[in-house]
């Protein structure tokens, strides 16, 4: 097991280098470099741009800039923002809890709902419920997240006035947990929709596959009740592809969170990204690309390890 963990960690290193190269490269491939936008601004003079270049080290050769930035990542120095000169990692971490709360609650809702729908569909295959659920899932996957969000705001916030239309707290109620939960409902619903659909599809096909296996027939032949067959025999075997899905889905979750946060004014990392994009805050954008990618790599690593714990055969490969 320790060998397996060490091997998987080693495999993550080239991935990290690749990720940092792409994140850095994208920012510097921009025509004119990171400061190009300022050359178009008439109120900024050429010598100001030169000065800024030197302050941010943008006058140095590109590989020196990359090495400085990449080595800073490991020592916790992720660079400083153009505006205000704040440490990038601090700016990102400040937004992390809001995003984690949103992603966590959406993922929990989606897993519980999606898994139940998928398992029920697999058990009652080709029933009315199953047909409705499978086509409903494809229907949900076709919804543009932001449109679904706008519709949800229109119905629940503007027409029915049940829930707030955006933000994280009511003004002056920061820290009030009831207010937070009220603000969390709609974004969670919107972000959970697509993930629920994916989960119901994958869990349905994972369970259908498992239920055709010989050991399921044996369990049935020896007289185990359906609930025991499902929980003791089907579930652990169907869990493997679903845990893998958890790792694979992380980037989608971040993409969805970005759109959801933009619609609802949720002060998380997605909003930070869009704001940084509008202000051309390259250090934040590079940091965000790096941060999400590291998050995804760790997520996939954990998923692989969890699978290896469940299934000893994986470790032998």
């Amino acid at each position: 097991m320790i060998g397996f963990i060490a091997w998987r960690l080693l495999q993550a290193i080239p991935l990290l280098i690749g990720v940092s190269l792409i994140a850095f490269g994208l920012m510097h491939l921009a025509p004119g470099g990171p400061l190009a936008v300022y050359t178009l601004n008439p109120s900024i003079q050429a010598q100001d741009i030169e000065r800024v270049k030197i302050i941010f080290g943008l006058d140095q050769p590109i590989y020196v800039q990359y090495l400085k930035w990449a080595s800073g990542i490991f020592s916790g120095n992720w660079g400083y923002t153009f505006f205000g000169g704040r440490p990038v990692l601090g700016v990102i971490l400040e937004r992390l809890p809001a995003t984690m709360l949103l992603m966590g609650s959406a993922l929990s809702v989606a897993i519980v709902l999606g898994l139940s729908i998928g398992v029920l569909g697999a058990v009652k295959r080709y029933s009315v419920f199953d047909v409705l659920a499978t086509s409903g899932a494809l229907f949900a996957l076709s919804f543009p997240t932001f449109w679904f969000g706008l519709m949800a705001i229109f119905v629940f916030a503007i027409q029915l006035r049940w829930l707030p239309s955006g933000g994280m707290w009511e003004l002056g109620e920061e820290g009030n947990i009831i207010s937070l939960l009220q603000h969390l409902v709609l974004p969670t619903l919107v972000l959970a929709l697509v993930i629920t659909a994916t989960w119901s599809r994958y869990s349905r096909s994972a369970f259908l596959e498992v239920m055709q296996q010989d050991y399921m027939r044996t369990a049935r032949a020896k007289g185990l009740p359906p609930a025991a067959r499902l929980m003791r025999h089907a579930f652990p075997n169907a869990a493997k592809p679903l845990i893998a899905l958890l790792g694979v889905e992380l980037p989608f979750l971040f993409s969805g969170a970005l759109v959801t946060e933009t619609i609802f004014g949720w002060p998380g990392m997605g909003r930070l990204f869009v704001d940084a994009l509008n202000m051309k805050e390259y250090p934040i954008l590079m940091g965000m690309m790096m941060f999400t990618a590291i998050f995804v790599i760790i997520g996939n690593l954990l998923a692989d390890l969890a699978i290896a714990v469940i299934d000893p055969r994986v470790r032998l490969r």
Partner: peptide
Amino acid sequence: FVDTMLCFPQVFLLLVVAAF
């Protein structure tokens, strides 16, 4: 290379390039 590209959330990648 494919693995590396898949580490980035697509909307993030898309927006960064589209902004340039």
